[in-house]
Amino acid sequence: MSNTRKNNDSLPRLAFLGLGWIGQHRMQALLEEQACRVVAVADPSEAVRARARELVADAAIATTLDELLQHELDGVVIATPSALHAQQALQVLERGLAVFCQKPLARTQAENAAIVEAARKADRLLGVDLSYRHTEAMRRIRNAVVEGELGPVYAADLVFHNAYGPNKGWARTPALAGGGCAIDLGIHLVDLALWTLGFPEVERVTSRLYANGQLLAPGSETCEDYAVAELALASGAVVRIACSWNISTGRDAVIEAHFHGSKGGAAMTNVDGSFFDFAAARFEGTRRIPLADPPDAWGGRAIVDWARRLAGGARYQNAIESIVQVASVLDRIYGR
């Protein structure tokens, strides 16, 4: 599909850095929604660049960020290995361009805070692909919590167990990825819990990390494949999360978020082990009240929302600062 489908000068001019599966998917989502003009794309892989030529025949093809930045742009979408995000995002923001980055935005709280500060200083729109917020299931659950339908929420249980795991070497190297399954999958759980509950103060974090069934010491250089953590909130509520790679679940994935309030509960659950299909329901005792069911094309909503805000002239927005709190919790899970 070519970005010439709609030649509208009001659309933001974007470049894409990294066009693996996720980068291509997000680019296609923008093109299908006619939400941007793809000016240039870059990837170190010759095969990936050849595929990009098929998707966006009129875009410039490059291999590096420096080459991308030679073009007239409004923003850059970053979908590269995690260790590169901080330096690349800072370089883009220092050029006065907006950034949309795959999660994690960076490996540590300090790196995240530096990027957010750079966006604030440049007064440029910064977005992170925390895509599960944009499922209809989680939207409905958050609305139920915000509107008080559950009463005060005193507990939440969230899990993301993946029967598979990353096949890129860097993703299993803590120095490059920032950690293992906790930063890869747990970031979504921490973000969903805090976002749903209004980003309360997290008073205490306890955790245990495992690799191949062996408990790891805090600060271990070994990449964990199972993580469990408990977050004690200033409200008195408790959040429990667990996530894993390559676990035996009898299905592809277990992805769930349960919220327990004084007047009832609500939960998002993946359907039949799917990574993409989610249902949501509210509970009153033994009564189940459906809130959302698949199908739901949610994967590209975060980036489309960012692109539309950018097209509308949006600059730095304070809401992005929540990513620093999420990163702080992850640092505490890792004991750093």
Score class of each variant (00 low, 15 high):
residue 94 E to T: 09
residue 30 L to Y: 09
residue 155 A to C: 03
residue 111 E to T: 05
residue 159 V to T: 11
residue 293 D to V: 15
residue 75 G to N: 10
residue 300 G to Y: 04
residue 189 L to P: 11
residue 175 A to V: 14
residue 227 A to F: 11
residue 323 I to P: 07
residue 193 A to H: 05
residue 46 E to S: 10
residue 272 D to E: 13
residue 195 W to D: 10
residue 145 V to L: 00
residue 190 V to D: 03
residue 251 R to F: 01
residue 60 A to T: 05
residue 199 F to D: 01
residue 313 G to A: 07
residue 227 A to G: 12
residue 200 P to G: 01
residue 328 S to Y: 01
residue 328 S to P: 00
residue 129 D to W: 14
residue 307 A to I: 09
residue 121 K to N: 11
residue 190 V to Y: 11
residue 281 A to N: 04
residue 75 G to W: 03
residue 223 C to P: 11
residue 109 Q to D: 00
residue 84 L to H: 14
residue 25 H to Y: 13
residue 12 P to S: 07
residue 154 Y to M: 02
residue 96 G to A: 08
residue 250 G to A: 07
residue 22 I to E: 04
residue 212 N to P: 00
residue 52 A to H: 10
residue 198 G to L: 00
residue 328 S to A: 15
residue 210 Y to V: 02
residue 61 I to E: 08
residue 336 R to A: 06
residue 163 A to C: 10
residue 197 L to Q: 03
residue 281 A to H: 14
residue 335 G to H: 11
residue 326 V to E: 02
residue 100 F to A: 00
residue 317 Q to G: 07
residue 204 R to N: 11
residue 283 F to L: 06
residue 68 L to A: 09
residue 205 V to N: 11
residue 16 F to I: 14
residue 314 A to G: 07
residue 274 S to H: 05
residue 302 A to S: 15
residue 80 T to F: 09
residue 178 G to C: 09
residue 52 A to I: 03
residue 251 R to Y: 02
residue 185 L to S: 08
residue 269 T to H: 06
residue 84 L to F: 13
residue 5 R to W: 07
residue 256 E to W: 01
residue 48 V to M: 14
residue 197 L to V: 06
residue 51 R to F: 04
residue 316 Y to S: 03
residue 166 P to W: 13
residue 61 I to R: 02
residue 277 D to A: 15
residue 310 L to R: 10
residue 131 S to L: 15
residue 152 P to N: 07
residue 16 F to T: 02
residue 118 A to Y: 02
residue 10 S to N: 08
residue 116 V to Y: 06
residue 261 G to H: 10
residue 275 F to R: 05
residue 317 Q to P: 02
residue 107 R to T: 10
residue 244 S to C: 12
residue 261 G to C: 04
residue 213 G to T: 05
residue 194 L to V: 12
residue 2 S to V: 05
residue 280 A to M: 03
residue 20 G to Q: 05
residue 141 I to A: 01
residue 56 V to A: 15
residue 86 A to Q: 15
residue 5 R to T: 12
residue 279 A to V: 05
residue 335 G to N: 07
residue 236 G to F: 10
residue 43 D to I: 14
residue 190 V to L: 02
residue 205 V to D: 10
residue 62 A to W: 01
residue 221 E to L: 13
residue 266 A to F: 06
residue 18 G to Q: 12
residue 255 I to P: 03
residue 234 A to V: 13
residue 81 P to S: 08
residue 186 G to S: 06
residue 84 L to N: 12
residue 81 P to Q: 06
residue 317 Q to K: 07
residue 281 A to V: 03
residue 166 P to R: 08
residue 31 L to E: 00
residue 206 T to N: 07
residue 264 G to Y: 08
residue 97 L to T: 05
residue 292 A to T: 05
residue 308 R to W: 12
residue 275 F to H: 15
residue 192 L to F: 09
residue 86 A to F: 05
residue 124 R to S: 09
residue 120 R to C: 02
residue 149 E to P: 00
residue 249 T to L: 15
residue 155 A to T: 01
residue 242 A to S: 15
residue 248 S to A: 14
residue 111 E to A: 09
residue 124 R to G: 09
residue 175 A to W: 04
residue 133 R to P: 04
residue 238 V to D: 00
residue 60 A to P: 06
residue 233 L to H: 13
residue 22 I to R: 13
residue 324 V to W: 04
residue 181 C to M: 12
